[in-house]
Nucleic acid binder design. Sequence first.
DNA 1: CGGATTACCTACATGAATGTAAGTTAGAGC
DNA 2: GCTCTAACTTACATTCATGTAGGTAATCCG
Lengths: 204, 204
Amino acid sequence: MSSAVKRQKTAPKRRRRGPEEARREAVATARDLLIAGGPKAVTLKAVGARIGVTHANLIHHFGSAAGLQSALMGSMVRDLNDALAAAVTNLRSDEGAPRALVDEVFEAVDVGGAGRLAAWIALSGDLEHLEPVRAAVQDMVEAVYEKFAEAGEEGRRRITRAILFMALTAFGDAVIGASLRDMLGEGDDAARDIVARLLPSFFY
Amino acid sequence: MSSAVKRQKTAPKRRRRGPEEARREAVATARDLLIAGGPKAVTLKAVGARIGVTHANLIHHFGSAAGLQSALMGSMVRDLNDALAAAVTNLRSDEGAPRALVDEVFEAVDVGGAGRLAAWIALSGDLEHLEPVRAAVQDMVEAVYEKFAEAGEEGRRRITRAILFMALTAFGDAVIGASLRDMLGEGDDAARDIVARLLPSFFY
DNA sequence: CGGATTACCTACATGAATGTAAGTTAGAGC
DNA sequence: GCTCTAACTTACATTCATGTAGGTAATCCG
């Protein structure tokens, strides 16, 4: 006892993850940091500190800081796409109602910070990262069109505008909805209530 | 011509502005940089280079980089407020029509980058900078209420939601409207057309 | 068990943004 | 014209995010 402080012999000095798990953990942490502190909070050092790894190790896994950011964007866009696809699937099933669609879209854009990430991308000008969303959005137009609209070009155009309307509102709500609703004394669900009420007016 | 290279004696080695003009120029340039390149493009060095001044001089005028950012936010929020106030004034005059209001709000949020700035503020978490907008938004509720709504609490609530709806859409359109409309094959005015068509449904 | 792979580390280099100190000079007021 | 203020400058220090080089050790596989 030479010393009060003794290193336990079983203390693992390093934890060694597989590359895929290391990347997963890093991206998930980066997402948390983005949601909590905005884009500038997502640094190699901050991400590394949270998962007990040095910034150099993150460069080892992602190649560069831009590589991590790209992986983060890819992950979130993928999640957004999955959520939108799920909403489309639900819509195509018989239970799909406009209100359920609205809720699913709002959730998809809000949770996981997808809307805020999209804002970051748009502000930074890295629009190519948004490209994978294109197909998902167009897919939703098709699904809603099949289910609700009158046939023909006029019907499709109405649906396109309905989706644009819903997407813009969901996005705006995710980014500044909290502030705006506070200014106006409205509750958390105000925006999606409005959209759910107005959406059917596009269908007929 | 003794020498090909001769320093003109009248060449002003320094231009000396008054403090208010120096600040005005810097803020205007910062705004251009923000719109063109996003938040991270707004640095002391970049702003100084554009107006022919060193970064140290900007610190002299604004105290710090945060001081310049704060001044920029203040300037843009002030412009946004002015534009909203003008829209309210027009609305209160007899010529004020819903469509004109929509156009004015969309312009106010879009031009000068006010919407993108608001997104930056919201993402960064500096929500206090958004505070001055609160009064302008509430003022707009009052104006629309007086002009269009049925009296009573129910009428006011409808108007509040109409303003929320319009503000969210205008904001979303300013930030990612271009991308979304491109994905959907819609034109520049699609969002404001939609809002103008739906807005009256809140009034009665 | 021994060796190869590679996840992970420490230590250092670099560049960019910000900030400070100490001067210079333009211009306003006497 | 002289003087004083302050708008400007250059030169430096600091901090932080990123990146590089090279070593250490954890795990797999023979």
